[in-house]
Simulated assay, not measured.
Amino acid sequence: MSQLIANNSTQATLSAEALALLKRLISTPSFSREEARTAALIEAFFQEKHIPYQRLNNNVWAQNQYFDATKPTLLLNSHHDTVKPNKSWTLDPFTPLVQDGKLFGLGSNDAGGCLVSLLAAFVYFYNRPEMAYNVVMAATAEEEISGRDGLELVLPLLPPIDFAIVGEPTEMQLAIAEKGLLVLDCTAHGVSGHAARDEGDNAIYKAIQDINWLINYQFPKVSPTLGPIKLSVTIINAGTQHNVVPDTCTYTIDVRVTEQYTLEEVIETIQANIQAEVKPRSIRLKPSSIPADHPIVKAGLALGRFTYGSPTTSDQALLSCPSLKCGPGHSGRSHSADEFIYLREIEEGVQGYIQMLEQVV
């Protein structure tokens, strides 16, 4: 009984420290590629805990005290960059405001609550001897822009990772699969001419034919967890003046890819069925998943959580190991005006991560 009381007291202290750190992070602007000051706050957190750490650019990471290279390694990861506040904010996005059981502020939900909860869980296990797993904590940058100087920069410097928990707001439910992302820039080519005469070959019309195919096409293989691949045309541009038939029309396709196809296969299928020239911006952000019978998933299920497939993309897409997306907060609040996280969600995040990891590490 005394050990249970001590553990509860420790978790309560860690939750309070996590909340205090989150307030400091909110107060410190950290747009993608501009996270130096929040990286310094995370450094200070490790220093206060007397935990050795490393930093590269705006990424900060540490490993457990009794790290043993012969053991498998778990990565805990979340990001400390934010999007820029939209014009609909009615509050100061950089003033942490506690009201009605909520903490308002930019990055509170995405993904500050997850980050500080993971940091608290890492501290809880940091100096525990004889664990089955090593634990590495990485607070990384540039997630919101899928940048190359965030987690992707750090991964080669970490020990081999056997599985990972990526902190994103999921209400502490278990996202055991996540769609990958392809962004395709397409150019339909025509021939310019005078709009008043029967001249030219209108590139807009060619693009319309392509878009009609994209609207109606369904990839045959459907993921049991993530559902079908989703194609969305999100940008289109053409023309210079009203009386000139345009010879080019550019448009962009947002493709959310499942594990049923490689990114290369998706590109090949699209290119074979549309007239436009197709150029992928990147083939880095692949679908990701973790087996439903993985010990960390079983630990979450034992706590009454459920599994699902996530349609959104995170730094999980950069990992080649099994990975679980899980964290406090609600995905629907991300990037919203007057963003907030419930205070209880931070406590639940700290407690939930610890309870899950207790069954594994």
Rank of each mutant, 00 (worst) to 15 (best):
I283R: 04
L263T: 04
S78V: 13
A132F: 02
W213A: 06
M356N: 02
P311A: 10
E142K: 10
E152Q: 14
Y205L: 14
A337Q: 06
T95Y: 02
C326I: 09
W89R: 09
A111V: 14
K84H: 10
G105A: 07
E43A: 12
N127S: 15
K71M: 03
S282N: 07
R284S: 08
L263Q: 15
G329W: 10
L91P: 01
C186P: 03
Q359R: 15
L184R: 01
D100E: 15
L214K: 10
D68E: 12
A164V: 09
V255M: 03
A272G: 04
V361W: 07
A337F: 05
G113Y: 04
I296A: 08
I26C: 05
D293I: 11
A292N: 14
V222W: 01
T140E: 07
M172W: 03
D201R: 09
K279T: 15
L324W: 06
S2W: 02
L97Y: 02
K221R: 14
G105V: 04
C186Y: 00
P311D: 07
G304K: 09
A44G: 11
A207H: 05
G200W: 07
H194E: 09
Q351S: 14
Q355R: 14
G180R: 12
H294Q: 11
V278C: 03
Q316G: 11
R24Q: 15
I341P: 09
Q63P: 00
S146V: 05
Q316D: 05
K23D: 05
M131L: 15
N109Q: 10
L174W: 03
S27R: 13
N57D: 12
I270V: 10
Q260G: 03
Q173A: 05
L157W: 10
N273E: 08
E268H: 13
F122P: 01
A40T: 14
E265L: 09
G113A: 05
N77H: 06
A62R: 01
K102W: 00
Q218W: 00
T95M: 12
V166T: 10
L75H: 02
V136K: 00
D68Q: 10
S78A: 15
Q316K: 12
I51K: 13
G349N: 07
P246L: 02
L357G: 05
E259N: 14
L153D: 11
V116I: 13
S282E: 08
W213P: 05
A121I: 00
R256C: 08
K87W: 00
E171I: 01
I161F: 04
G227H: 06
L174R: 14
R281D: 13
A302V: 06
M137R: 00
L357I: 14
K221M: 06
C321Y: 06
D338V: 12
E265S: 13
V257I: 08
P159I: 08
T307H: 05
D100P: 11
R148I: 13
L19I: 15
Q351R: 08
Q209A: 08
H189Q: 13
V278D: 03
S108G: 12
F67W: 04
S88T: 07
G193S: 08
A196R: 06
M356C: 11
Y353S: 02
E277F: 02
L157V: 02
Y66L: 09
I290H: 11
L21A: 04
T258E: 03
A195H: 04
T269E: 14
E358K: 15
T10M: 12
S282F: 04
L115H: 03
Y133D: 06
L4H: 12
L76S: 03
Y261K: 07
A299D: 11
L119Y: 01
I283Q: 14
